[in-house]
């Protein structure tokens, strides 16, 4: 490799349960390495990208992500995000980002009132983000969801703004890549599976790309382009600034 490994930080809240999966996913990339960031710490350890993992932080008490959002490490993550740092929230991490106000909208109970655990098909709606730059527009990724509160909602004005500004990054579709009845597992408004902020450095998604990084294993490898995009972006930024 012609570069030092890209440094990822994976935040560990009490109740996170996909932190080891995210750590492992990053470790499958020769050009990247991960370290854990403890919720009570404030030091981001000089990482170049932060992942908020899935799970049930603080038991999902009150609202999913509502208590995690006030943990010491999140104050540093919020500062990092405001300075342009790359932050990716997966599932409970996405819920924490909306609670923190780093992403618009909210995630409420699935319309079916059931925990959903299944494969979904995601259409990449934009490659103009640091998290999808290695994808192709319209590409369909098959990865899993596993959540009870993944029903994305937002007021109509904000939704219109997200659509106009190309901030809807992933949508639930069928295997052919078309929006369809039954493709959306949770009732999310406008079939939204993932959104980014206005400055495009903060991204949240309900499905779990960290479970799809190894071809030949059950999860497949469709999650890889998302991590690859982050690595590519960090390296590009490093080249520009060095």
């Amino acid at each position: 490799m012609g570069h030092a490994p890209v440094r990822f930080g994976v935040v560990v809240f009490p109740g996170s349960n996909c932190d080891a999966d995210a750590y492992h996913a990053v470790s499958t990339f020769p050009g990247a390495g991960a370290q854990y960031l403890w919720h009570k710490d404030t030091d981001l350890k000089d990482v170049q990208a932060v992942i908020l993992p899935g799970g049930f932080s603080y038991g999902d008490y009150l609202r999913c992500g509502a208590i995690a959002r006030f943990s010491p490490i999140m104050q540093s993550v919020i500062d990092f995000a405001h300075e342009g740092g790359l932050v990716m929230g997966i599932c409970n991490g996405f819920q924490t980002l909306v609670e923190a106000g780093l992403l618009p909208g909210a995630l409420i109970r699935n319309t079916g009132l059931k925990f959903v655990c299944r494969y979904v098909n995601l259409r990449v709606e934009t490659t103009r983000t640091p998290f999808t730059s290695a994808c192709e527009t319209g590409e369909v990724l098959r990865i899993v969801v596993k959540h009870n509160e993944g029903n994305y909602t937002v007021d109509p004005e904000t939704l219109a703004r997200l659509q106009a500004a190309d901030q809807i990054v992933l949508r639930y579709v069928d295997a052919a890549g078309e929006r369809a009845e039954g493709a959306n597992p949770n009732g999310a408004l406008d079939d939204v599976a993932g959104v980014c902020n206005e400055t495009r450095n903060v991204f949240g998604m309900m499905p779990h790309p960290e479970n799809s990084v190894e071809a030949g294993l059950a999860g497949g490898a469709d999650g890889r382009p998302l991590f690859q995009s982050i690595i590519d972006t960090v390296l590009r930024t490093a080249e520009v600034t060095s």
């Binding site: 409420i108 109970r109 699935n110 319309t111 079916g112 009132l113 029903n151 909602t153 007021d155 009732g187």
Partner: peptide, 11 residues
């Protein structure tokens, strides 16, 4: 108001 309440709707 105006936000879907899946639990309320089910009841």
């Amino acid at each position: 108001k105006g936000i879907l309440d899946p639990q309320g709707a089910a009841v």
